[in-house]
């Protein structure tokens, strides 16, 4: 690897750069090293690709798992008669899942899935492993958010649906969930942001997400400032964009409560 040395670099730099004060020269040098030299910006874009794929995959999986669990638990808790056997079993299983997932650190879950349970051999398999682990983890938190959302809708709403002859599932789908969704959107948004930031943990299963790639650049340049500040800015921009999209969605959904 050709090593980039500040003295050589500035000697060959354009005149306007040489005219800058020392600290600014050094800063431009670091920017150059981090992003431009040997096309290192590709580290960030490659890492972002992994971060996006894992976040979006885990988000979808987490919402599906969370929704299913919340429905099972709500159905169990709100059933008028003694729940039938299958429902009691599912409820028991969901409780076990929530206890285990919320009771162990995400890092530990990644290590177990990555090296014990799934032990993926290909890159695609490793990405899937990351998505599944994060999705299963997120599902536990989404489940509790969704459940609180379902509980926040008054019993009268589902009674009105049932009295019209709608089934439990139809009542849930057409009446309770749409209203609950609106209520839980802020909490769900928080969970999404947490998930995005938690993807940085996937480096333990040897995935190169954007955080890992920033570390790789820092390892190459032995400079921490520009790679890590850039990394922070990347996350910040992503979170700001997500927050903005969520607030637009919230405003749309609010149109019915004048």
């Amino acid at each position: 690897m050709t090593i980039l040395n500040f003295t050589d670099w500035i000697a060959n730099a354009p005149a306007w750069l040489q005219a800058l004060p020392d600290w600014l020269q050094n800063f431009v040098f670091q920017l150059y090293q981090t992003f431009i030299y040997q096309n290192r910006w590709k580290f960030f874009t490659d890492g972002l690709k992994i971060t996006f794929i894992v976040t979006i995959g885990a988000l979808i999986l987490g919402v599906i798992i969370g929704l299913l669990i919340a429905i099972v638990r709500t159905a169990h808790d709100s059933s008028v008669k003694k729940p039938f056997f299958l429902l009691r079993f599912l409820n028991w299983f969901c409780n076990l899942y929530l206890t285990v997932i919320r009771g162990t650190p995400m890092m530990v879950q990644l290590l177990i899935m990555g090296f014990v349970i799934m032990a993926p051999k290909t890159e695609a398999g490793t990405i899937a492993c990351g998505i599944i682990t994060l999705g299963i983890n997120s599902g536990a938190y989404v489940a509790e958010i969704v459940r609180s959302g379902l509980m926040s809708i008054s019993v009268g709403q589902s009674e009105a649906g049932r009295s019209l002859g709608l089934s439990y599932a139809q009542t849930m789908w057409h009446i309770v969930i749409p209203q609950a969704f609106k209520n839980i959107l802020p909490a769900l948004g928080n969970e999404m942001i947490t998930l995005l930031k938690d993807t940085s943990l996937v480096s333990v299963i040897a995935l190169r997400d954007v955080t890992k790639q920033a570390q790789n650049i820092a390892n190459k340049t032995y400079q921490a400032f520009v790679p890590y500040i850039s990394l922070a800015l990347i996350y910040l921009v992503l979170v700001i964009v997500m927050t903005k999209l969520l607030s637009i969605l919230e405003r749309r959904l609010r149109k019915s409560d004048h």
Partner: peptide, 29 residues
Amino acid sequence: IYCTDDYGQDHVKQYDSGALAVAALVNGQ
């Protein structure tokens, strides 16, 4: 650092510790 230079990122998996790298070898990863 040497391996990434010699073989490229696509052929190098980075683990947090040597033990994890060896565990991955044992698993066939």
